[in-house]
Amino acid sequence: MTDDLARLSLNTATTKKWTLSEAVDGAVRAGLPAVGLWRDRVAEAGLKTAAQTVRDAGLRVSSLCRGGFLTAADPAGVRAALEDNRSAIVEAATLGTDALIMVVGGLPDGDRDLTGARARVADRLAELAPFAREHGVRLVLEPLHPMYVADRAVISTLDQALDLARPHPADAVAVVVDAFHVFWDPNLPHSIARAGREHRIASYQVCDFNLPIATDALLSRGMMGDGVIDFTPITRAVADTGYTGDIEVEIFNADIWATPGGEVLTTMTDRYRELVLPHLTPE
């Protein structure tokens, strides 16, 4: 690992075709100190094996993705969500990360009540936060771009996430600043500053917002520098809060997935050095 990459983390979504072991090996070869893991890759390897693989490589786990999907209104759906999230909390603790990324969920089928769905998210967080805290894990709320509000996340802004986090200790419920999802928000500088004051930034994720939007909107993420996001003000705002944690690159993009993983990491580290790293020193 070189000093300039000391905070850069490869999220396994970026190299989707790699197994967990391949992603760990790739991160080591690229000189990275950390990986962000998705639960599907952990499940394929087995939880204990996954944890040992990362430890043996000398890497840290910057986050586990994902928990959440808390908006069910029926008793069976609520029970299933709570059970799955408790399992995810235990997985995060076993892997040695305190950050469980939470995609809170969209509207249930046939439901148009966003306010009610958000209230159910708040109720589920109240049930899960003590369990998470007992395990040394933070529930890290991820606001998603508004185009995902109906199917994936009924919270779209960092302020909405912080409002949901407010009733809970900062070491139990926190937020992630994902540039792809929040770059558009005119209140973003103030929201990031607020998150810093409340000590709730648990993760900073970077990737670009590509145009035209893909037929599957999930695949509109791009490599930094290939889209429309200006990373300078966002990165500076995060740095100014005193955040010193990892910076994850998490990309869903069919072309990137079709590119050999080693090439992806070379481009990723180059773009990080060019577009993100120079702005990580607080002003």
Rank of each mutant, 00 (worst) to 15 (best):
Pro75Thr: 13
Gly196Thr: 09
Thr232Ala: 15
Gly222Arg: 10
Ala161Arg: 02
Pro75Asn: 08
Arg273Met: 05
Ala161Trp: 02
Gly105Lys: 04
Thr241Glu: 11
Ala88Glu: 05
Thr53Cys: 03
Ser63Asn: 07
Asn85Arg: 12
Leu114Ala: 13
Val54Lys: 06
Met1Glu: 13
Ile234Leu: 09
Leu95Ile: 01
Leu139Gln: 11
Val175Gln: 07
Thr215Ala: 08
Gly245Lys: 10
Val154Arg: 01
Glu248Leu: 11
Val176Glu: 05
Asn253Leu: 09
Glu83Pro: 00
Ala126Val: 10
Leu100Asn: 05
Val173Ala: 01
Met147Thr: 13
Gly26Met: 03
Leu144Arg: 04
Gly261Leu: 08
Leu37Glu: 15
Ala193Tyr: 06
Ala6Thr: 15
Gly96Tyr: 08
Ala150Val: 11
Gly31Gln: 05
Glu22Asp: 06
Trp257Asn: 06
Arg29Cys: 02
Met223Gly: 11
Ala119Gly: 07
Arg200Val: 13
Leu162Lys: 05
Cys207Trp: 00
Asp74Val: 06
Ala179Lys: 01
Asp240Leu: 02
Asp3Phe: 09
Ala258Thr: 05
Trp257Thr: 05
Leu100Phe: 03
Phe231Val: 13
Ala165Asn: 08
Thr259Asn: 10
Arg112Ser: 11
Ala165Met: 08
Val264Gly: 03
Ala126Leu: 11
Leu277Ala: 12
Gly26Tyr: 01
Glu248Phe: 06
Ala153Arg: 00
Thr71Ala: 03
Phe209Lys: 05
Asp151Met: 01
His199Asn: 09
Ala117Leu: 00
Glu250Pro: 00
Glu83Lys: 15
Pro186Val: 02
Glu198Leu: 08
Glu274Gln: 15
Leu144Ala: 03
Cys207Gly: 00
Thr244Ala: 13
Leu100Thr: 03
Ala51Phe: 09
Thr267Cys: 07
Ala258Asp: 14
Val28Ile: 12
Gln52Ser: 15
Val121Pro: 00
Val140Thr: 09
Phe131Trp: 12
Asp208Asn: 08
Leu47Glu: 14
Lys48Val: 10
Ala27Gly: 14
Ala193Glu: 11
Gly116Thr: 10
Glu248Met: 09
Val24Asp: 12
Arg197Asp: 07
Arg29Gln: 08
Leu100Ser: 04
His168Cys: 08
Thr269Met: 13
Asp111Gln: 07
Leu128Phe: 14
Ala45Leu: 14
Ile213Pro: 00
Trp184Met: 01
Glu283Val: 05
Tyr243Cys: 00
